[in-house]
Design a protein around this nucleic acid. Structure first.
Lengths: 224, 224
DNA sequence: CCGTATCCAATAAGATACTG
DNA sequence: CAGTATCTTATTGGATACGG
C-alpha cells in the first residue's frame, strides 16, 4: 500500500453528518459520536491523563479514546497540555466552552434518571458520582445547610461545598471538612440513591450531618 | 431461508452499550444513536406522520426512520397512535417523558450555537426554528412585551405567545394574532439570526412589533 | 506510560424495490 | 401512504502488537 491512508479525523472543513442548521444537529456533529460525551464528562473536574480516563470508561479501547480526544480537540472542546513541572505529565483538559457543556450533561443525566430501565448497579466513575451529586441536589432540601464535604475514591479525591442550596464540587485535596466519605464510587451512589445504610461506607466527622446529606438527593419519579 | 431473522430492535432486556450507571450514559443508551434525538425533536410540538418526518429530516432513509421510531417506542419515549376520526391517520407522538426532553434538547442546541463551525446556511425544519425561538429568546429583552405571533411555513403553522419574557409555542392554526410571518424556515432563521432584512419574508400585521420581535434572539458569543 | 498501526469482524446505513 | 425486504457498501470498533 503506497497511498498513505489519511487519518479520518474529519478535521478542518468537516462536512456535517446532519444537513440541518439547527443547533441540536450541530451539537450532535460535535459530541454525537459514541463515547464522545462520556469522554468530555471525564474532564469536567479538571485535566486527566489518558490511562486514567481509559480506566474510568469501562469498555473503551485505546483506539477509540485516542480518536475521540483528537476529534474533541479539533473541534475546540478539549486541549492537550502538559502539567507544570515537576509533574510535567501530558494531560487533556476541557476548554472553557467544553466546560460549559456541564449543565447540559447534567440535565441529560437527570432526564434519563427517570427511565424505568435505568440500572443503577452498573459500575460508575468518580466523576459521574460527583457530577450527579452536583446535578441532583435538591435546592429546597439543601437550603440553609452550610458544610464542607470531602470525598475519597482511592486515588481521586474531591472537596465540595454545600451552600445556599447548591453543591460546588472541585477535584483536589480534601482539606479540612465537616464530613469525609471514603468509598468506591458505586458504594457512595448506593448510599445516596439506593438507600443503602450509611454504615456500608467509611464516614468520618459529623455523623448527623452525613446522615442528613444523604437525604438531599431525591430521585425523580420514574416515567411510565 | 427458513429462520425468520429477528429484527434487531434491542428490546426488552437490551444490554446497555455503556457499562456505566451514570445518568448520562443511560441517556446515550436511550437517545444516543444517530438520528434519534432529531427524530424525537420532530415530535416536540405534537404528533407527526411518518412521511412528514422523513421529509423534514433531510438525508434520513425510511429504513432508519422506522427503526429509530421503533426503538424510541420500545424505550417509552414515543407512542404510535391513530388520530381521532375523521382524520384516522396513523401518527407518532412523544410521551410525557419524551416531551420532557425538550429543555435538554434546547440547551444542547444553545450550547452548540457557540461553535465557531456552526453553519447556519444549511436547511432547517420548521420544528427546529420554532424550538430555537423558544430556546433562544432573551427573557430580559422580551420582558414586558405581550403579543400573539403567527408563523406559516407552507403546510405547517404555529401560534406563539410572547409573555413575561417567555415564548410559548404551539403547533396549530394561527388564529388571530398581532403579527403573522409567512416564510420558509430557513428564511425566517436568516432574518432572526442572520440579520437578513425583514423585507425578505412576508410579514402581516404590526410591523413595529415584528421588527422588535426579530431583535429578541441574540446569538451567544462564539467560543475560541 | 502513552499512545499508533494494523487487521478483522460486526454493524449500520443508503439505495432500491416492493407490499398491504 | 407507511412502511418492509434485500442487498451492498462504508464505518466502526475491538484486539493485538508495537514504537517513542
Amino acid at each position: 500500500m503506497q497511498l498513505k491512508k489519511v487519518t479520518k479525523l474529519r478535521q478542518g472543513k468537516e462536512k456535517p453528518w446532519y444537513d440541518d442548521a439547527c443547533g441540536l444537529a450541530h451539537a450532535l456533529d460535535l459530541v454525537g459520536e459514541r463515547w464522545a460525551l462520556l469522554v468530555l464528562r471525564e474532564l469536567m473536574f479538571g485535566p486527566r491523563r489518558f490511562s486514567e480516563m481509559k480506566a474510568d470508561l469501562p469498555g473503551i479501547s485505546a483506539n477509540v479514546l485516542a480518536q475521540r480526544l483528537a476529534e474533541l480537540e479539533a473541534r475546540g472542546l478539549v486541549r492537550k497540555t502538559r502539567l507544570p513541572p515537576p509533574a510535567s505529565v501530558q494531560v487533556y483538559e476541557a476548554t472553557q466552552w467544553g466546560l460549559e457543556a456541564a449543565p447540559v450533561i447534567g440535565s441529560l443525566g437527570k432526564w434519563a434518571a427517570r427511565s424505568p430501565q435505568h440500572d443503577p448497579t452498573l459500575p460508575i466513575s468518580h466523576v459521574s458520582v460527583m457530577m450527579s451529586l452536583q446535578t441532583m441536589v435538591d435546592p429546597a432540601l439543601a437550603q440553609g445547610i452550610n458544610a464542607r464535604l470531602g470525598f475519597r475514591f482511592g486515588e481521586a479525591s474531591y472537596a465540595a461545598i454545600l451552600h445556599g442550596g447548591r453543591l460546588d464540587v472541585e477535584r483536589g485535596e480534601v482539606g479540612s471538612c465537616d464530613v469525609l466519605f471514603t468509598a468506591k464510587p458505586a458504594e457512595l451512589a448506593a448510599v445516596i440513591y439506593g438507600g443503602a445504610p450509611l454504615e456500608t461506607i467509611d464516614v468520618k466527622g459529623d455523623m448527623e450531618l452525613a446522615k442528613r446529606f444523604t437525604t438531599l438527593f431525591p430521585l425523580p419519579p420514574k416515567a411510565e
